[in-house]
């Protein structure tokens, strides 16, 4: 009785927590994971497990021994980084490369800024881009989606739709005829994920299920992913209308590569995306335009990771100048 609690208002809380949001994202990633196991076999499991364990390990070690604070590895953020890093690499990537990627993602991408909430760039993408630049061969040798099998590093490999596109652009031929000649899988298969690519990015429909789940649980808002989809579609569409020989159908952009995975799970990362709805829309438009530009004109076949990282760098600026709609 004489030990009443006193605090300023409000006296109740919604019950929302970091864990609820982080584990919600993980649940939303499950359909995509199941698909990748079905397409890429045992390699998907090995890569994901390695990445998750390595991320948790590095997070624990850095928090405990370098930053000397209470480790918070079970808040789910390192788990997500691990899963997303794995989803962004080919399923036949050697274990040691993944561990290096995890170290860069957690160590440089996150902890060097001070841990959860302080990082500027999406940690998983920092790891992924580091690997892409350091190990270009391993990172762009894509296994084929052959149904469940137990071969890991020695899985059969082939081209992804995006690498075909890049080859087509370079060859100077008509994009559509080139794609057809080189065994393009078709849009239906792209939606299902039946194509080569990084292990988590292929199954567009599974990622969309995750998106719907996160929207229902109110973990994210629709603004960033939908803006990215629309921008890519409209911008790609305009290019396509201008010159269908050189620029591919916008649907191809939407369904290929890491666009779905990036737009739904990585561009929406809380820490590195803007806070206001207006800011989120600007951020989404920026990512969409940069992605199409890199895919069509850049040296790399895939532009999503770079586009997100570039817009991450603009996030503080967007937050500074993009104020939410004030009351009156």
């Amino acid at each position: 009785m004489d030990k009443l609690l006193i605090s300023p208002s409000p006296h109740i809380h919604s019950g929302d927590s970091i864990e609820r949001n982080m584990y919600g994202v993980l649940i939303a990633l499950i359909p995509a994971f199941i698909c990748s196991v079905l397409f890429f076999g045992i390699g998907a499991i090995i890569v994901t497990l390695t990445s998750v364990v390595a991320c948790l390990f590095f997070e624990y070690v850095i928090q405990k021994f370098i930053l000397k604070r209470q480790p918070t590895i079970w808040d789910g953020s390192a788990l997500i980084t691990g899963v997303l890093l794995a989803f962004n690499v080919p399923s036949n990537l050697p274990v040691w490369i993944i561990i290096i990627g995890a170290l860069v993602a957690i160590g440089i991408g996150k902890m060097s800024f001070g841990g959860l909430g302080c990082n500027i760039f999406n940690p998983a993408l920092v790891g992924r881009v580091f690997l892409l630049i350091s190990f270009p061969v391993q990172m762009t040798t894509w296994p084929l989606a052959e149904g469940f099998h137990s071969s890991y590093v020695d899985a059969a490999t082939g081209a992804t739709p995006l690498s075909l596109l890049k080859a087509a652009v370079k060859s100077g031929e008509s994009v559509n005829t080139y794609l057809m000649d080189e065994g393009f899988v078709g849009y239906g298969n792209m939606l299902l994920g039946n194509m080569g690519g990084s292990l988590g990015e292929v199954a567009a429909f599974a990622l969309l299920i995750g998106f719907a789940y996160m929207l229902i649980r109110k973990i994210i808002t629709w603004h960033i992913p939908v803006t990215i989809f629309l921008t890519v579609f409209i911008f790609g569409g305009i290019l396509n209308v201008c010159d269908p020989e050189q620029f591919v159908n916008p649907l191809f952009h939407l369904l290929s590569g890491g666009l779905m995975l990036g737009a739904i799970f990585m561009a929406t990362d809380y820490v590195t995306s803007p806070m206001s709805h207006k800011g989120m829309i600007i951020y989404g438009v920026g990512i969409g335009i940069l992605t199409v530009l890199i895919r069509q004109f850049g040296a790399y076949p895939e532009g999503m990771s770079f586009a997100i990282l570039i817009m991450n760098a603009f996030t503080p600026l967007i937050n500074r100048y993009c104020k939410p709609k004030r009351f009156a």
Binding site: I18, V271, M275
Partner: peptide, 17 residues
């Protein structure tokens, strides 16, 4: 620590941050 999720911004009825 703040994870910059922006939920407070969405919740504020006065449109503040």
């Amino acid at each position: 620590s703040c994870i910059r999720c922006g939920k407070c911004v969405s919740a504020c009825p006065m449109g503040l941050e």
